[in-house]
Design a protein around this nucleic acid. Sequence first.
DNA 1: AAGTGTGAAAAGTTTCACAGCG
DNA 2: CGCTGTGAAACTTTTCACACTT
Lengths: 206, 206
Amino acid sequence: MDKIDIPKKAIYRLSIYYRCLQRLKENDVETVSSDALARAAGVKPSQLRKDLAYFGQFGTRGLGYPVEALGTTIRETLGRERLQPVVLIGAGNLGSALLRYQGFQKEGFEVVAAFDANPDSARTRVVTIPVFPEAELDTFIRDQTIKLAILCVPAEFAQAVVNRLVAAGVQGILNFSPLLLEVPADVTVNNVDLALELEHLSYFIR
Amino acid sequence: MDKIDIPKKAIYRLSIYYRCLQRLKENDVETVSSDALARAAGVKPSQLRKDLAYFGQFGTRGLGYPVEALGTTIRETLGRERLQPVVLIGAGNLGSALLRYQGFQKEGFEVVAAFDANPDSARTRVVTIPVFPEAELDTFIRDQTIKLAILCVPAEFAQAVVNRLVAAGVQGILNFSPLLLEVPADVTVNNVDLALELEHLSYFIR
DNA sequence: AAGTGTGAAAAGTTTCACAGCG
DNA sequence: CGCTGTGAAACTTTTCACACTT
């Protein structure tokens, strides 16, 4: 894998480009210039071209990029050729909202199961995704070879749950606990820290 | 304001340091070295020192940083001396979960009101924060001089709502719509794009 | 002529190493 | 002596400018 020298931020942008390409495809656009796609994605054209160049040559000089083919390539690059199953741990307030959130399915992720210390609680009954007791987490992940997990448990349990997830084979964790998680180098953690984001904003208002 | 040449990422880290300092304070620690605080925050000691140096000199050589005083300074730097009122727009699935989310209050933000096209919907009844019809948004923000908003409306309405927020005086927006928002230069938008974060992870699993 | 691909410059950020202070 | 503050070096990422292809 020569993923080493590609800026991490470029990977994020790839997802954004992919979304824009999908919209273009829906509108039956066949070709798009770096200029137009960059504007849609909110980046500079030169950056878009540089980002795409990390993965190969996709454009035709004088013409632009083929919408469909570029979309497919990015999809494959992101490892999204096939539907990724995801589990969610902690179906509390935020967790159960995420279970109902349509954005994940819309982008082609399937939340196949949720786990909670108290699976019968009122909140979890609303959703159609099955909620299992937390104890079954390890075997489920192993049996279904799940690689992605969304973590919504209270901060004090987060590290313990992460250790179990990692041991069971999870390689990517979307973490909503405001906490620094310790994981081996081959596991990626993405932190979504809502209070932190709000705090960051408050610096910029005068 | 000489906020110009401070790395944006340093601002994020400031919030993290602040949290760590709060924990230390709770444990009655009076002084902390850059080494210890950096480890708690998950950064290199040299980076911590550099970050703090952007704002002045707070440490005592040979000793470390005073926990309480440094906390206060960071708090002021982040513009958090006083409780910041926040409004939330769009009390749907995700929005109403955020209304119930305790993390914001825990970090000293008060979500004072929510607005929704359909304020009487079942979901919004659970929460104690008042949910007003969307039409009252503009006057409320103006009257209460609200500067921060959390945006959870469906993507197709997001830009229109943002225009109203900005016109009413909002300067910071925490945006949960997977959409590029257009705002004037003096308004800051923080995007939390959940599907994007998951997609990003899927690149790193093999 | 239009628009990509890319080396090189610029800008931004992190890390180092050590002088200097308590 | 211990630990901060900081200039300079190293590294990363973005932007530019233009050669090159269709």
